[in-house]
Design a binder for these strands. Structure first.
Length: 206
DNA sequence: ATGACGATTTACT
DNA sequence: GTAAATCGTCATA
């Protein structure tokens, strides 16, 4: 898996909705400082459309220290801290100065399941965790893969710590579209169909 | 300097 | 279904 073909800049420089659909089925790879490889196949993503999107951190053109990397070129990582305890990871879309991104909401774990179990074991016993408890949510997967603010702004096209490789093709018939999660404050933007996931996949968030 | 609030997860009734 | 956990960030002053 770590030898598979990496996704190029060209792949990421698309509008967030198109990129979100294209990200389904691709593989996110994390190389830990000790060299261990953790990876998972993307099964759920949301698109954030930037300045016009009331649910986006860059709504209205907001540019702060926290969301700075969302303004980077497509293919960078935007990782933020939320609820006083969780990290979430986005893949930045489009070009530099066009602050749009795709939130990675769930992965199907592929490599390093034991390490993921250990990292997810803060509350429960590792042995009691099902595979579908490891990466079935945006903050679960960052915890499982050891992704935090240190990786905010890294270039996924060139980094050896965090990157994406080409996965198996996804069948259109398995792709489901739905409203995004946890953004009821965004009013009319809350029910736009910008969440994409693989129908019936057990690793999709609940 | 202050206060309100999360692009969530977990446990419990 | 409801609620607690927990604190950096941002808008306001």
């Amino acid at each position: 898996m770590s030898h598979a073909k990496r996704l190029t800049r060209r792949f990421f420089r698309r509008d967030p909705e198109t990129l979100a659909r294209a990200l389904l089925g691709q593989v996110l790879v994390r190389r830990l400082p000790n060299g261990k490889l953790l990876s998972g196949r993307i099964v759920e993503v949301e698109a954030y459309l930037g300045i016009e999107d009331k649910a986006a951190h860059t709504y209205g053109g907001r540019r702060t220290e926290r969301n700075a990397s969302m303004w980077f070129d497509g293919g960078h990582a935007y990782i933020y801290f939320t609820y006083g305890m969780h990290y979430c990871m986005n893949v930045v879309s489009a070009r530099a100065e066009v602050p749009t991104a795709c939130l990675i909401r769930a992965l199907e774990p592929l490599e390093g399941l034991d390490e993921m179990r250990r990292r997810r074991a803060r509350t429960r016993l590792p042995a009691r965790l099902k595979d579908s408890d490891l990466c079935s949510g945006p903050a679960k997967l960052t915890q499982a893969l050891g992704i935090d603010r240190q990786l905010d702004g890294v270039d996924l096209v060139t980094s050896d710590e965090l990157f994406l490789v080409r996965g198996r093709k996804v069948l259109g018939a398995n792709l489901t579209v739905a409203p995004r999660v946890g953004i009821s404050y965004a009013k009319e933007w809350a029910w736009k169909p910008l969440r994409f996931f693989l129908r019936g996949n057990p690793h999709v968030s609940r």
